[in-house]
Amino acid sequence: MMTFLVRRLAIILPTLVFVSFIIFGLQQLLPGDPALAMAGEERDPDAIAHIRKTLRLDEPIAMRYAYWMAGVVQGDLGISLRIQKPVGELVLQKLPVTLQLAAMAMLVALLIGIPMGMLSAVKNGSAWDYGANVIALWGLSTPNFWLGIMMILLFSVELGWLPASGYVPPAEGLGANLAAMVMPAFVLGNAIAAVMMRHTRSAMLQVLSSDYVRTARAKGLYERAVIGKHAWRNASIPVITLGALEFGQLLSGAVLTEQVFSIPGFGKLIVDAVFNRDYAVVQGVVLCTASAYILLNFLADIAYMLVNPRLRS
C-alpha cells in the first residue's frame, strides 16, 4: 500500500510542472493585448507601456515563465494588476467561499443522488425507478443559469425568504451565511446529484446481479445488510471517483452559478480576470485549483483503499 501511495505522490510534482506549462502557455494564446484590455477606454501610450513593462510583455515567453515560476516556488503568485492586490491574498479570500459552496453542493448531490440511485437500482423497473430517472433527467437537462434565476425570482423576489444573491462570511452571521448559500448550493448540487444518481444506479445494478450478493441473500441475510454492507460498499468505488472529480471541478469555480448569485468565489474571479486579461490572477487561481484537483484525486486513491480491502494488498 505504501509503495502505491509513494508512487502516486511521486507523480504529483511532475504533473504540477506540466500543468504550470499548460496554464502559462494557453494563456499566451488568448487573443488581444492584455495591456490594452487593462487600459480599457484610456489609451495613454505611456500608461500602456508601463503595464506592458510590469507584465514583462516585451520579454520572451520562456523568461516570463521563469519569472512566474520563481515567484511561485517562493509562495508569490504575483499581483493583480487590476486591483493591485497580491494574487495569494485573493486566493485566500476566495478559497473559503468556494470550499463552502463546493462542500454544500456536494452534500446536496450526495444526499439526493446516492439514495435515489440506490433506490432506483433496488426497485429496478418499478415506478420508483422511473420516477428517479425522470428527476435525474431533469437535473441534467436544466441549465444552472436558468434554474438560478428562477429560484431567485421565486424565493427572493416573490416569497422574500432568501437573499437574492451575495455572500455573507460565517463570521458575520452563520444564519445569513447559510441563507445566502442555500440556493447556489442547490443549483450546483442538483446537476451533480443527477450524475451521481445515474452512476450509483448502474454500479448498484451491476453489483446486485453478482454471485456474492446472491450468496448473501441465499444465506438469509436481511436485505438491508445485503445492500448496505455487501452491495453498496463495492458499488461505491466508481461513485467515489466521480465524487472526487466533481468536487475538484467545483473547486475550480462554478462560473455560471457564481455569476448568477454574485458569489465571490474562484469562478467569478477567474472569469473576470480572463476578460480583463489580469494574467497573474488567471495563472495563480488556475494553478491553485489544478493543485487542489490533483490532491483530491490522490485522496480518492486513498479512499479506494479504505473501502476496498483488495486494493490494500
Partner: peptide, 18 residues
C-alpha cells in the same frame, strides 16, 4: 457598493430588498 453584473439579478436584488 455591490457589483452584480447580470441585469436581471441586479434588479431581483432590488426587488427582494437586498
Amino acid at each position: 457598493y455591490r457589483p452584480i453584473i447580470d441585469n436581471t439579478v441586479r434588479l431581483a436584488n432590488l426587488k427582494s430588498g437586498q
